[in-house]
Every structure is written in C-alpha cells, then in structure tokens.
Design a protein around this nucleic acid. Structure first.
Length: 824
RNA sequence: GCCCGGGUGGCGAAACUGGCAGACGCAUGGGACUUAAAAUCCCUAGGGGGCAACCCCGUGCGGGUUCGAAUCCCGCCCCGGGCACCA
C-alpha cells in the first residue's frame, strides 16, 4: 500500500518557476487569439501606475486574485484574455519626477521595465502582446479623439467656475480628488477656491442613467452604494419667492411641507442676484462679506458645525405660502454649487437654519408637531422659541388648510398647491457635479483645442492627432494658473485650422482619469493605429466580463469609465453602455492592523518573499490569509503552512501510481465534494475557503490519522483533478506536477474536473439529537430517513433517554439529514 | 451627524436558508524518528468542573422572538470605510 522513497526529490520553487515561465514564453501559452477565440472571456484587472517603488503587496494581492479568476475560467473552457498596461501620465508621476529632478519621460520607461519583470515573476497569465501605455502617443491620440467626440456632442464645455485649487500641485482638482477639503495627494494642504476657465465633461447629463443602471449591473454592493451616495439623489421641490419688484428667487427644498415655517431666505454669497437685491445702506457690509467668503479656502468654509455667519441684504421676499415678507440674507453655509444656490430657511425644522436664526435673532415658527414621546433634535433654549425638530413624523401646524396633515402627505399637497399658483414644482436634485478635466500641468495629453481670434474655439482636426506633448526641459508648474506648456511659445503658436490665421493651442492637459476611463476599450485593439477600437473585436470582447480592483476607485475611475462608455454609446461608437458586466472589489492588505505606508515603516516588499518562498507559495498565501473581498493582515509566519501543503502534494505526485488502483467510496466522495465546493468558492472569489477544501482533500489522500510516516501511493486518477484545481492558485507548481503525472501539454489546456453528484452523495448522515434545544447525542442514520424513524432512533440513545426520562414528547422537530429536537 | 462593513479560541479565520460553534491553517504543548538538532510524522488544544462516562459556561454588551440564535428583532459600545453646512 505504501512505500518509503529512497531519496525523495525536494520541491524547488525557483527551478520549477523559472522552467515554466520560460516554457510559457516559448509556447505562447498566455497569448490569446483575439479573432479566433470561440468563447471569449475578458478578464480585466486595474492597470497599475508604475511607481518608482515597484509593485506593492497590495498590487500583487489584487492581481493574483484576478489571475486566479482568469485561470479558473480558462480551465472551464473559456478563451480568456488577460491584458495589462500602465497608467503613467498624471500628477503622481510628475510630482515624483520633480522630487528626484528627473524628467518623467526618462523615469517612466525604467519603472515600467521593473514592473514588467515583477508582474512576470508573479506568474500572471498576462497577454503582453496587447500592453498599453497611456503616455504613448499611439494611445493618447485616441484619448484626445474622445475629447473631440465629446466636444462635438456638446459634452465637453469650457466654463468659468469656482474650482478646487491645490496650492501644492499648482493645479485644479476634480471634486472627487478633494478629500476633507484637502488635496488627495497633499493631505496637509487645504484646497483653495479659484474662479477659472476650465474644461468640463458634462457627466451630469447622464446622472439618472448612471444611477438607474447600478440596479442591473453585477457589481460589489459596497461599490454600488458608494456610487449611489456620490450621485446623491434628493427629491423635493423648487419653490419661487418673489421680491417686491417681482424678481423671482428660486430655492430647492426637500421639505416643501415646511414652507409655512420659512421665515427668512439665504443666498450663497456668490449668488448673481445678490448684486441686484442688496440695498444701498447694506451694500458695504454685503460686499465685505462676499469678499471674505470668496477668499476663504474650502476647508474653513466647508467644515460644518462652525459658528454661523451671514449678512442681511436689506431686501425682503414674499413667502408664496403665507404671503408674508421675509428678510433675505447671504451666508456661506449656502453653497452656490448645490441646488439653486438659495434656500428658504425653516429654522424650526433644519439644524443649520435653527443655529443661524438663534445667532441673528430671526423668527422661528414651528410648523410640524412631533408625535407625543418623539424626541426632538434640540430642546428649546428659551421659552419663547420652539425646539428643533427635523423628523418626518407628526402633524402640520400653523400651516392654514394643511394643518393636521402628516409631513409625508403634505409634500405633494403643498407642492401641487404652489404649482397651481406658478410658485413651485417638483424637482429632483443631485449632488454630482460636472467633471473638471483641465489640469495646469505638464505630464498629460494636451487638450486638442485651438483658440483663434476670428473663429473662436476650434477643435484640432482628427487628422492632426495626436497633439504631441513637447519635450520640455522645465516642466515645473507655477502660480500663474496656467500650464508650463504656456511658457513654450514655439509649441502653442499654431495657425488656425479653419482660417489659417494666428492662433494658440490650449495649453492645459487633461486629467489622468480620462486616460484610464477607456483603456479597457483599447486592449483588444492595441494593434490598430487608424481606429481607437476595432468594431469587430470590440463586439467580440466587450463589455468586460470580469473586473477586479480596489474600492478606492469606486467613485473616480469606475464612475468616469461608465460615463465615457455611455457617452460613446450614445454617439454610436459602442453597442453597450455599461463597460463592466461584473465588478468585484477586493479588500486591503494591512500589516499589524494598519494600512501599509512608508511613514509607518510597515511596507511589505513582495520581491523578498517571492525570492525566498517562490511565487506560487506567495500567491497561495495571499489568497489564504483572509476573505479576498475583505483583505487581511499580512503575517509572514503563515507562509510556511502553505509551503508545507505544497510539499505534501509534491510528495503524493512523485509517488503516484498509474495502473489505476482501488479507490474507496469515501475517498471518491471527498473528491467530488471537493470538486463541487472548490468550483463554487472560486466562482465567488472565496479563495481562502477553496484552499481549505483542497487541504482537506489532501489530508484524506494522505490518510491523515494513520501513524504511518511514509508517503502513501495514490493513483493518478485521484491526483489529476487535484492538480487541475490547484492550477489557478499555483500555476507553475501545477504545470510541473501535471508533467510528472505524464502529460505533455499545459495543465491550462486541461479542463476542470467534472463533478458527479452521484459520487458525492453520502448514504449515511450523522443526525444531531437535541433535547429541549441542547445537543445530547448523535446518531448515524440513512440519508433521507423519515421523521418518525429519526425520532425512534434518537430515543434509543442512552444519553437522550437520560434527559427525556419518562416525560411525554410535547413536540418533535426534524430537519432532514441534520437534526432532531425533542421537546419535553 | 448620515450611510455601509465588521466585532467568533493565543492568532488568521470557517459555519448553506435560524439547526453539531471553532472547518482549514499559524503559533503553543506532548510524543515518534535522530548520537543531537533541523526537517518530517502522530496526538492534544475555547474556558471551567470531574478519576471518568459526562456536566456547566461560551460568538462585543443588555434585552427579546424561537423547540433551537454567531445568524432574526430592539437598545447600546468599539473598530474600519464612505459622505458631510448638499437645503
């Protein structure tokens, strides 16, 4: 049955991995025949920014998880396309280049070379024939082309707007890049506001579709939620208050039911009507306040719960519900970018208005009475003032004919009533803003626009693309608010494409997120220079079947990619409007419970581990340390367990018998249960439990529990399925084992073992026997035994009899093949 | 403040739809092999009690529903993430 090996060959990962990587390269194992594929499967991973530090463990974790998925799909018979590229434009690269005082054009190729080496070493099934680099003019030609298409469609517009300015980056930032009022790249630097002419993509034209489609795409729930919140849909009404001269001031409110309690109004300091409304005697004070607000940085202005400030304009407006004249104020707690930039203040039922009214002694009128016993949000500070109550429960008071209604019923009733007087209508408001894509920096694709004194804003003709980024010695940004390209007259002075007269190029470059918003469209078509994406190949391969990446891109990259795809769809360039059919967010790898960072000094360098343990052991360890979609804590002690496991498999494979030995029924059952379980787990990216099941199977094969220390002889029939199931996780190792099991083709040309339900079924199960809900014994019974029989068997147990005694059974519960519970 | 996710042995974790809590692995202890060590193999391993068969307690805390709760409900505490003067 068993034999002791004379001199067992040790598993040497370095040798095995070098050998198979060479062979994969020679045999083109990982190259996909894009036009010939029969069952195309597009397996995408988020392409990296090629930093000078090289691949991070977090990257490796992300990529390996995606690679395991791709390899699993391949074994299931799909023609898997697993491409990779490099996202090398942008502030990140440029800032680093400035720091080390080397041109990014020189740094990036070096970094990319290092990344290629590392990615290959990890053993990813990447098709290098379709690599893309966003910094390649062959690529960004088409990034510029997308800009032109959006421009033609009126989806790229230039407008003067208050924008986020990072004094450190010396450029504007998209709202998505501002975190806590600070630049995402410079957490110590508050973002300031500037009023600049910028190019915007009208993502807000797609808001409702971006929101609705979230219902029907198979994405991680967490990611969909983040996008939903980011879009920030609010239902309410737009109401009109008029000045004594009849000038309308529109306000947006989610609580039209409280309009009878609107005792004053507030406009944003930047609101265009402020000029018109302010009375002469108030003008000086109002102007001073507006100047202060304009100069204020975003943090100080945006941080909530600070003292409310504001100034009375001297004007009054008529509340359309009560007919009263109410004072009009300006205050910085009202934001110009949201709603109409003006609000009706209902101090009794809004926290901010309440604080403001108390500060400035404005009238507070309760119009919603909370039901008895419902806590209010803030007790009344004085007897003559009502408490603050922001809830939706209760009844309306002081609201004339609407008194007694619930707020929920009053919303449509009051909205319709005001609408009949031309003073309001239903409205939906979103938090999402247009995407500002201008960057006053050097390291990006120039925006393909030319300004001509005669012809105005002229798009660069398609035949002139790409507008190449000129090599600039000094690419340092400055305070001027314009790009370093604006210092290069030779470059920006061009004839107008329309009239031939003197004209000037746009000197801003576009946001890096535009580069990455379409790279997945380019991969299959990377060979074509005359089209961004070939219609036939695009039809065949897109949308992406599986996309795996980090949730840090939930609202940036993933939202922009959806928008660009949707826009290109509407313009007739794509047949689909959602780019990623399935998206899964992976978790984060932490070290000692904390996020890895250079400042903490807890960064794990993957190379050292791969050198010491081999890529396969490292891959499998990463997949085992926690649920893939949650991430986990990196502890190096755990790696040895994986290595021990691979050594055991190695031992079994090298002692395999080929003549077809006897296979016991329990072993066969375990095999088929494993085939089913592992497939289910891999399908759902539950890599840690898939590995546990493979370990269990190996324990069975090794006859764990027997005291025989030698390696048992196991027939190849039991080992082949194991090796195939291991292949997605440990590809080199599995190839080597496959060969030793006397195969001369790649294990990835094999197919996933077939699950046979009949072989997995047990004929007996162990029923748990409870008495009054407590486990008192177990009994082995045939599968599917009848209720009465199960009870009878249970009652025969001594341990059960003792607890039942002579008492009659009041009730019996039988869960088939699981348990019986006797209630006495 | 609002919206998610989480809290289970010494540690990472598992547990289908409410049905044996702790699979799998790490570390630890004991044993085998060895002159010895490493490697390897075997056993034990939530806490407490008992010579033992067994018994009691136990999934962040306090209540509840249920024959039965890590899982469902109510009220809290702590950790992680997202949003945040968004009307």
């Amino acid at each position: 049955m068993t034999h002791t090996q004379s001199s067992p060959e040790r598993y040497d990962p370095a040798a095995v991995e070098a050998r198979w990587q060479r062979r994969w390269r020679e045999r083109q194992t990982n190259a996909t025949d894009l036009s010939g594929a029969v069952r195309p499967y597009y397996n995408l991973m988020m392409f990296p920014y090629p930093s000078a530090e090289g691949l991070h463990v977090g990257n490796v974790f992300a990529f390996v998880g995606a690679d395991v998925h791709g390899r699993f799909r391949r074994l299931q018979g799909w023609d898997v396309f697993e491409p990779i590229g490099f996202d090398a434009f942008g502030i990140h690269s440029e800032n680093y280049a400035l720091k080390v005082n080397t041109h990014p054009a020189e740094l990036i190729p070096r970094n990319i070379a290092r990344f290629r080496e590392q990615l290959t070493r990890v053993g990813l099934m990447l098709d290098w024939d379709h690599e893309v680099q966003t910094t390649d003019p062959r690529y960004y030609k088409w990034t510029q082309w997308i800009f032109l298409k959006l421009f033609e469609a009126g989806l790229a517009v230039k407008k003067k707007a208050p924008v986020n300015w990072c004094p450190e980056c010396k450029t504007v930032l998209a709202n998505e890049q501002v975190i806590d009022g600070r630049c995402e790249r410079h957490p110590d630097t508050p973002v300031t506001q500037r009023f600049l002419e910028q190019w915007f993509f009208r993502i807000t034209a797609f808001t409702e579709r971006l929101l609705e489609n979230l219902q029907r795409i198979d994405w991680s729930e967490s990611t969909r939620l983040m996008q939903t919140n980011w879009i920030g849909r609010s239902e309410g009404a737009e109401l009109v208050f008029r000045t004594e001269y009849g000038t309308p001031i529109e306000v947006f409110t989610t609580r039209p039911d409280t309009v009878f309690g609107a005792t004053y109004m507030v406009l944003a300091p930047e609101h265009p009507l402020v000029q018109v409304l302010t009375t002469d005697e108030r003008r000086e004070e109002v102007d001073a306040y507006r100047r202060r607000a304009a100069a204020m940085d975003v943090v100080t202005r945006r941080v909530g719960e600070k003292e409310k400030t504001g100034v009375f304009t001297g004007a009054t407006c008529r509340n359309p519900a009560t007919g009263e004249q109410v004072p009009v104020w300006i205050a910085d707690y009202v934001l110009m970018e949201y709603g109409t930039g003006a609000i009706m203040a209902v101090p009794a039922h809004d926290e901010r208005d309440y604080a403001f009214a108390l500060t400035f002694g404005l009238q507070i009128r309760q119009v919603v009475e909370p039901p008895a016993g419902t806590p209010v949000d803030a007790p009344a500070p004085r007897p003559d003032v009502p408490p603050l109550y922001t809830g939706w429960e209760g009844t309306l008071v002081n609201s004339e004919r609407f008194d007694g209604m619930t707020p929920t019923d009053a919303v449509p009733a009051i909205t319709e009533w005001l609408e009949s007087q031309g003073a309001g209508k239903k409205r939906v408001q979103h938090r999402l803003h247009d995407w500002c894509i201008s960057r006053q920096r050097y390291w990006g694709p120039p925006i393909p626009i030319i300004y001509c004194a005669h012809c105005g804003t002229v798009p660069v003709p398609e035949v002139d693309l790409p507008v190449e980024l000129p090599p600039l010695e000094d690419f340092r940004p400055d305070e001027s608010g314009v790009s370093p390209l604006a210092r290069n007259e030779d470059w920006y002075q061009v004839p107008c494409p329309t009239c031939g007269g003197d004209a000037r190029r746009e000197t801003d470059v576009s946001d890096t997120f535009l580069d990455s918003a379409w790279y997945f469209l380019r991969y299959p078509s990377s060979d074509f220079d005359d089209r961004p994406f070939d219609p036939t190949l695009t039809d065949k391969w897109l949308p992406v079947d599986s996309y795996i990446g980090g949730n840090e891109h939930a609202v940036l990259h993933l939202m922009y990619s959806r928008f660009i795809t949707m826009a290109l769809h509407d313009l007739g360039h794509l047949a689909f409007e959602e780019p990623f059919t399935r998206f899964r967010a992976h978790g984060m790898i932490v070290k000692d419970g904390a996020k890895m960072s250079k400042s903490r000094g807890n960064v794990v360098i993957p190379d050292e581990y791969i050198a010491r343990w081999g890529a396969d052991t490292f891959r499998m360890y990463l997949m085992f340390l926690g649920p893939y979609q949650e991430g986990g804590d990196f502890r190096d002690e755990g790696i040895s367990g994986i290595r021990r496991f691979l050594d055991k498999v190695w031992g079994l494979v090298n002692a395999a018998t080929f003549e077809g030995g006897e296979i016991t029924a329990p072993t066969m059952r375990k095999l088929h249960q494993t085939i089913r379980g592992v497939a289910e787990d891999l399908e759902e990216l539950r890599y840690n439990t898939a590995i546990a099941k493979l370990m269990e199977y190996v324990n069975v094969l090794r006859g764990k529990g027997s005291d025989d220390a030698s390696v048992p002889d196991v027939c190849s029939e039991l080992l082949e399925p194991l090796v195939v199931m291991l292949a997605p996780l440990v590809p080199h190792f599995s190839e080597e084992c496959w060969e030793r099991l006397r195969h001369d083709t790649s294990v990835f040309d094999a197919s996933w073992p077939v699950f046979e339900a009949g072989l997995a079924e047990e004929d007996h199960v162990e029923l748990v026997v409870q008495v009054n809900g407590k486990v008192r014994g177990r009994v082995s019974v045939p599968v599917g035994i009848a209720h009465e029989d199960a009870i009878r068997r249970a009652l025969q147990l001594e341990s059960v009899k003792r607890f039942v005694e002579d008492r009659p059974l009041r009730k019996t519960i039988y869960v088939e093949d699981r348990l019986v519970n006797l209630v006495v």
